[in-house]
Design a protein around this nucleic acid. Sequence first.
DNA 1: CTGCGGTCGAGGACATGTCAACCTCCGTGA
DNA 2: TCACGGAGGTTGACATGTCCTCGACCGCAG
Lengths: 166, 166
Amino acid sequence: MPDTRWLDDEEQRAWRSYLTSCRLVFDRIERQLQQDAGLPHAYYEILVRLSEAPGHAMRMSKLATSAMSSRSRLSHAVARLEESGWVRRRPCPDDRRGAVAELTDEGLAHLEAIAPGHVETVRGAMFDVLSPEQLRALHDISDTLVANLADAPVWPASEDRYDDAE
Amino acid sequence: MPDTRWLDDEEQRAWRSYLTSCRLVFDRIERQLQQDAGLPHAYYEILVRLSEAPGHAMRMSKLATSAMSSRSRLSHAVARLEESGWVRRRPCPDDRRGAVAELTDEGLAHLEAIAPGHVETVRGAMFDVLSPEQLRALHDISDTLVANLADAPVWPASEDRYDDAE
DNA sequence: CTGCGGTCGAGGACATGTCAACCTCCGTGA
DNA sequence: TCACGGAGGTTGACATGTCCTCGACCGCAG
């Protein structure tokens, strides 16, 4: 490794501010969801994706990708959601290896009950705080990051990583 | 709860893009540190704070605050870092309840060994990707978020939350 | 000086996430 | 048709984080 390109003071401050802001935002989201809905944000995401899918059902691997989750994580998560009665698993008709996760009526009802509180929290943590220009800029920045990091050669530790699916 | 102020399409996209980008950035950071340094980013932060403190030592509670950690989390973390030999705990001279965490020589050496890789990853995940204007904007946005969410009425679940300390 | 509320830090129980097998099954090529 | 590489999904061991409780101790009010 040749000479390190250290961060200068300005970059240092920017990076730490970014770290702090993300932590503050996500802590809020996480905490509110945990308290009011009894589930972590990752699980909420899963319910949302299912609710948007045709038939409120989706193939496990596709669900993993769309919820930005590893397969293994999704498997554990769905197991838990199944215990809670919000999701049901059934075999995939096309592919006997596969499984399909399906939102139950209770799951949908629960999601509809908790969504308003979550949205309000998101507004309070972000949309009510930033100016319209800041929001536009942040959207642009986020898109740029996603575009540049998405396919990312991050040594997918095992293959067990978001594959590029769909 | 009165009528929910739902997110419109644009806001929805912005929020999801933000979520995705943060996940991509932090996954990289986390993965690189775990692989090359054998520790999660939160632990790295602790080592950094200690290395910047006078005498490479800091009171536990102050360290918790400065590393944006709960006391309990810090306690577990320092226990682990102590096992690895990178940090040492000693009683606080002023306050017999207290404890002081101190970076060991090995800890400092380890930190110095792994810092370049981390910095390079941060550059690759952020500074090399965004334009100077984007970076300025992101810094400004982060500061705004921190300023507005820091004291945050987030029902500190138990008192066990970053207190506003020092 | 004594009692009392509050702070400091530790630790246990539990939830979530990661990694690494491990099966089952698919699709292809010989 | 059958072997084989790879995909889909699950599972168990383990690491990390959260919540809650506890014991020790501080500092103040009486």
